[in-house]
Design a protein around this nucleic acid. Structure first.
Ligand code: SF4
Ligand code: SF4
Lengths: 149, 149
DNA sequence: CCGATACTGGACTCGAGCGGTCCTATATTA
DNA sequence: TAATATAGGACCGCTCGAGTCCAGTATCGG
């Protein structure tokens, strides 16, 4: 459990295709990738792919180009795209509990007297920091630790 | 998102009541706590509390005593109960993706050609390690870092 | 200027899984 | 033996995620 939603999962899969220099013979390397092409590459349903790319674009992770020969490409180098930003884009603010201050629709009725409310918020930052420390580039190719740290 | 299930959330809440030396005036301190008492303390529905405590017991985190004056108490000191064990007990193996080797009912049809399957398994261990590094005692009372490390 | 392409935004349906309840059986003790 | 309290699991309603679909808009080629 603590499962990632499929949208987030597939989102990472799709983004990984932007890293490969030249995967499909017919397509150029610097060209934007269309939703349809990506769907075919990843063997995922096209509407789903489209939906995910839209969300990633709105979050500023991808940039889009309409019209023929349009498509998507990374908005910044893969070393500067954290997993946290991907997950946040596709399934909302990272919050282990319902009572996170980041959430607007908090419905837990125990906030006032819960003995672990505050402690669990530190857990939030632990998880968030963990996902923040891994970039897309590092995830896919562990040897590509460009910024050593 | 990446939300904890309510069972896990409430489980942590309930366990925290085992740490306080003497919370309710009527009850002794070393006495086992019954499901009914805990439900009243935490202001949670009794059947739910019962279900959670049962799961925690089967996982070896609590021990139970039947009969009158029965109840539950911690199976080991709170410093040796990791959050990971609690979460695992209440919502199953910690796995960020469906394709974790720890899971038996893997249904993802992309395991064979997925470019991020292996990388994401490292993410699994990152999250698991994070939850493993926090004990129940440390969570509730951050000053109680008995083993400094 | 027209039509094809491809993204944009959001509504919509369907099914699995979660939250929550309840009941029967068993162990313990007064 | 009666009262207490856990053990185990079946059961159900409802939410939310997965996935589809469509009307709208921008862009480019001809
Ligand atoms: S207030 Fe307590 S019970 Fe409610 S969501 Fe936060 S941690 Fe969980
Ligand atoms: S195989 Fe790939 S797509 Fe399937 S669950 Fe694992 S990471 Fe996600």
């Amino acid at each position: 459990m603590l499962r990632l939603s499929k949208q987030a999962d597939y989102g990472i899969v799709l983004l990984s295709y932007f890293l490969e220099p030249d995967s499909a013979p017919g397509t150029g390397n610097g060209m934007p990738r269309s939703a349809r092409d990506l769907a075919q590459l990843a063997e995922l349903p096209a509407p789903m792919v489209s939906k995910i790319l839209k969300h990633l674009t709105r979050a500023g992770i991808l940039t889009s180009q309409r019209g023929s020969h349009g498509g998507y490409h990374l908005a910044r180098p893969a070393t500067e795209i954290s997993l946290a930003s991907i997950v946040t884009a596709l399934e909302g603010e990272i919050a282990v509990t319902e009572c996170s201050p980041l959430l607007t629709d908090r419905t837990c009725s125990h906030e006032s007297h819960c003995p672990v409310r505050t402690p669990l918020q530190r857990l939030d930052s632990i998880v968030r920091r963990a996902l923040d420390g891994v970039s897309l580039a590092e995830l896919v190719e562990p040897t590509t630790h460009r910024n050593a740290s």
